[in-house]
C-alpha cells in the first residue's frame, strides 16, 4: 500500500518518514556507498528541506516500510538542476509545471527478490504510485537521474525513459537523466508488467483517491 506524504502530513506520518530516512542510509550509504551524509543512522539531504512529496510503500500486515521515493517539482529546487546539471547540455535545464523529479528511490534490501527475474512487487507499486500521483496532479512527465542498475529495472517494468543529455560519471558511477511518461497508457503497461491493474494509492484521506477515480473514469 502506498502512502502519499506531503509536508502537511509529515508530523502525522513521522513513523513512516523516520523508517524511510533509515532505509535510505542503509541503501545509499551502506550498500551503494554513495557520497551521502548520514547522521544518527538517517540519510537526509538539503532537498528534504524543500517540503517534497514522499511516496512510501508499507506492508499492510506488519506496518513496515518496504520502499520509498521523493518527488519535487522541476520549477523549484531539484537535484537535476542543482546537483546533476552537468548531465544536461550547457546551460540547459528542465523547468516545467508538468514535470516533477523523482529521486532517492529505494527498496528494503532484506525483501527477497523474485527468483524468476520478475519485478519486485514493491518496485511495481512505487512506479504505479508515481504515475497515479502524476495523473492526479496533471503532469505529463517525471524526470529522474539513474544508473545502469535502475535502467534494467525500468526496462523490466516496461517503463523505459527517454534519455536526455549525455550520461556522465558522478562519483565513479555512469549517471543518466531520463524522462518518464505519465499517462493512463503508462499506468496500464506498468500494471500489466507487474500484475497491479488496480490503483495502488488508497490514501487515508479519501479525497485524492476519489478524485483520481473520477479522473480515470473520465479518461476512458
Amino acid at each position: 500500500m502506498i502512502y502519499v506524504i506531503g509536508a502537511d502530513d509529515y508530523i502525522s506520518h513521522n513513523h513512516f518518514l523516520d523508517q524511510m530516512f533509515r532505509l535510505r542510509a542503509r541503501v545509499f550509504k551502506d550498500r551503494l556507498n554513495w557520497d551521502v551524509q548520514v547522521q544518527n543512522g538517517r540519510e537526509i539531504d538539503r532537498f528534504d528541506t524543500f517540503d517534497p512529496l514522499y511516496l512510501t510503500s508499507v506492508n499492510e500486515q506488519t506496518g513496515r516500510l518496504q520502499g520509498s521515493l521523493r518527488l519535487l517539482p522541476t520549477t523549484g529546487p531539484n537535484m537535476l538542476r542543482d546537483v546533476f546539471g552537468a548531465l544536461l547540455p550547457d546551460g540547459a535545464f528542465i523547468e516545467s509545471p508538468l514535470i516533477w523529479e523523482s529521486s532517492r528511490f529505494c527498496i528494503d534490501p532484506d525483501l527477497a527478490a523474485p527468483l524468476d527475474g520478475r519485478l519486485n512487487s514493491v518496485t511495481t507499486e512505487l512506479f504505479c504510485g508515481v504515475v497515479e500521483v502524476g495523473l492526479f496532479a496533471g503532469l505529463d512527465t517525471v524526470v529522474s537521474v539513474y544508473d545502469a542498475r535502475m535502467a534494467r529495472i525500468f526496462r523490466r517494468a516496461n517503463w523505459a525513459p527517454r534519455s536526455v543529455g549525455v550520461p556522465t560519471y558522478f562519483g565513479g558511477i555512469l549517471t543518466h537523466a531520463g524522462m518518464f511518461e505519465i499517462s493512463d497508457i503508462a499506468r496500464k503497461r506498468l500494471g500489466k508488467a507487474g500484475d497491479r491493474p488496480d490503483p495502488v494509492i488508497m490514501q487515508l484521506n479519501p479525497s485524492p483517491a476519489l478524485f483520481l477515480n473520477a479522473q480515470m473514469s473520465n479518461h476512458q
Binding site: 506531503g6 509536508a7 517534497p52
Partner: peptide
Amino acid sequence: LKQGFSSILPIDWGK
C-alpha cells in the same frame, strides 16, 4: 493556504 504552502499536490476544497 495552510495546505497549499506545504504540499505540492493540487487541493480540492471539497475534502
